[in-house]
């Protein structure tokens, strides 16, 4: 009888792409839960919209590209992109914001570059930056964090806000029905205050900073950190990029803080506010758009960390995670080219 031919090795790991993505999603759960807790259920609706849009867009474009639809959808990569984008945008942003963002992420950033594995930029962050630049008002109005008892953004309320096509609620959100529900993020507030001549101490005295780094934000970041550590443990990600980001951000912000505490916030503030932990463990670690070698990844991470600090401190935008990641994405091929590991049996440098 004839036997089957296959190339060696004949055994392999069972940890496949779909499973890796699935684990990423599972590890996002603590962070999402914290976000829901502090910022209401808007995020849940955003996630739902993003996932539906992402799968629809992916299926359509795969059909147009004559690629296998079912097996590609099964790799869960669109799911991760949609989730990350949905988490990143304000929970009560109107529905079309997340739809545009997701479509841009999936179609333009991912598939027009050749699909999973070929995209140069992190799809979620590219989508986020598009939204941030195109719809700055919607993208900077965050729900004010509430404690569980005060929770005012329930599902029905979120639904009403998100799907209300007359967007005056959002546009004039500060003084209308949802007054007290949305407001600037702590980093945004800080930036505005600093530009108005206040010192960090004065700014941090505001109620929004009642928690260590701003109410809710510390806890959300902490939850993402826990999820990230679980991923490290599960070997879904390797430590290099996260380590690079956090170390570089810590060093830079410590340096600034020690130099002039009045105009620079503490390293803890940097590490646990905004999207730092989400970026460090879930966004920048997207292997497709990162550098590939171990050393390259540390450099890649450090670059993101430093850029986050620089943009936060000197740039025009309050948070800088998306820009930092995209800039580092651009440098990844360059880093790979120059940081090649020394092959066995070769002298270093060859």
């Amino acid at each position: 009888m004839a036997f089957k031919i296959a190339s060696s090795p004949h055994v392999g790991t069972t940890l496949q792409t779909a499973k890796v993505m699935q684990r990423v999603v599972l590890c996002l759960i603590p962070g999402i839960a914290a976000q829901l807790y502090f910022f209401g259920y808007g995020t849940l609706l955003q996630i739902a919209i993003a996932i539906i849009t992402a799968y629809a867009a992916e299926a359509t474009i795969l059909a147009l590209r004559n690629r296998p639809i079912k097996s590609t959808l099964a790799d869960n990569s669109a799911l991760v992109t949609a989730l990350l984008l949905a988490i990143a945008i304000p929970p009560l942003a109107p529905w079309w914001v997340i739809v545009i963002g997701t479509l841009f992420s999936i179609i333009i950033v991912k598939h027009l570059y050749g699909g999973l594995g070929n995209n140069l930029f992190n799809p979620a962050m590219a989508g986020y930056v598009l939204l941030l630049i195109s719809f700055p008002v919607q993208m900077t109005d965050w729900v004010s964090p509430m404690s569980a008892a005060q929770q005012s953004v329930d599902i029905s309320y979120a639904w009403k806000v998100i799907f209300n096509s007359t967007s005056d609620i959002i546009l004039t959100g500060h003084n209308l029905a949802i007054d007290g529900t949305t407001m600037a993020t702590p980093l945004d507030t800080l930036k505005t205050d600093l530009s108005m001549g206040l010192t960090t101490h004065e700014s941090l005295a505001k109620p929004i900073f009642s928690s260590m780094t701003g109410l809710g934000w510390f806890e959300v970041n902490f939850a993402f950190l826990i999820g990230g550590l679980i991923m490290l443990k599960l070997k879904v990600i390797r430590w290099h990029i996260s380590f690079g980001i956090l170390t570089a951000l810590f060093i830079c912000s410590s340096f600034g803080f020690l130099l002039n505490p009045d105009t620079h916030v503490s390293p803890i503030m940097h590490l646990f506010s905004g999207g730092t932990m989400l970026a460090a463990f879930f966004i920048a670690t997207d292997p497709v758009t990162a550098a590939t070698s171990a050393r390259g990844r540390i450099i890649f991470g450090a670059m993101i960390g430093a850029l986050i600090y620089v943009i936060r401190t000197f740039g025009g935008y309050p948070d800088a995670v998306a820009f930092a990641v995209l800039l580092a994405n651009m440098c990844a091929p360059f880093i790979d080219h120059y940081v090649r590991p020394r092959t066995y049996g070769h002298r270093s440098g060859s």
């Binding site: 296959a6 055994v11 792409t17 890796v20 790799d75 590939t292 990844r297």
Partner: peptide
């Protein structure tokens, strides 16, 4: 005992 034949999927550059 051995891995089933599965189609090659896109490289995600996981390293």
């Amino acid at each position: 005992e051995i891995s089933p034949d599965s189609d090659e999927k896109a490289c995600i550059r996981c390293g």
